[in-house]
C-alpha cells in the first residue's frame, strides 16, 4: 500500500516525532508507514485522515 504521509507531513512542517505523538504511536511506526514497510490498521488510517482533514483514499492508495 502506497501513502502520502511523508509529503503531507512535510507540507505542514511536522517532524516524525510530532506526527507520532498526534497519532499516539511510536516514531518508528511512522517511519515504517512512510517507507511502506508497515500498513496501518483502519482505525489508525482514519485517525491520520482526521488529522490531515482528508479522506483516507487521498492518503493511502492500494498498489494493485
Amino acid at each position: 500500500m502506497k501513502n502520502r504521509l511523508k509529503v503531507l507531513r512535510a507540507e505542514r512542517d511536522w517532524t516524525q516525532a510530532q506526527l507520532a505523538s498526534a497519532l499516539e504511536v511510536s516514531r518508528q511506526t511512522i517511519n515504517a508507514i512512510e517507507k511502506g514497510k508497515f500498513d496501518p490498521s483502519l482505525p489508525l488510517a482514519f485517525k491520520a485522515a482526521r488529522l490531515f482533514d482528508m479522506a483516507i483514499e487521498d492518503i493511502f492508495q492500494d498498489e494493485h
Binding site: W14, Q18, L19, S21, A22, E24, V25, S26, L51
Partner: peptide
C-alpha cells in the same frame, strides 16, 4: 491540531 492533542500521551 498537533498542539490540541495530548502530545506525549503514548
Amino acid at each position: 491540531k498537533l498542539k490540541q492533542m495530548n502530545a506525549d500521551q503514548y
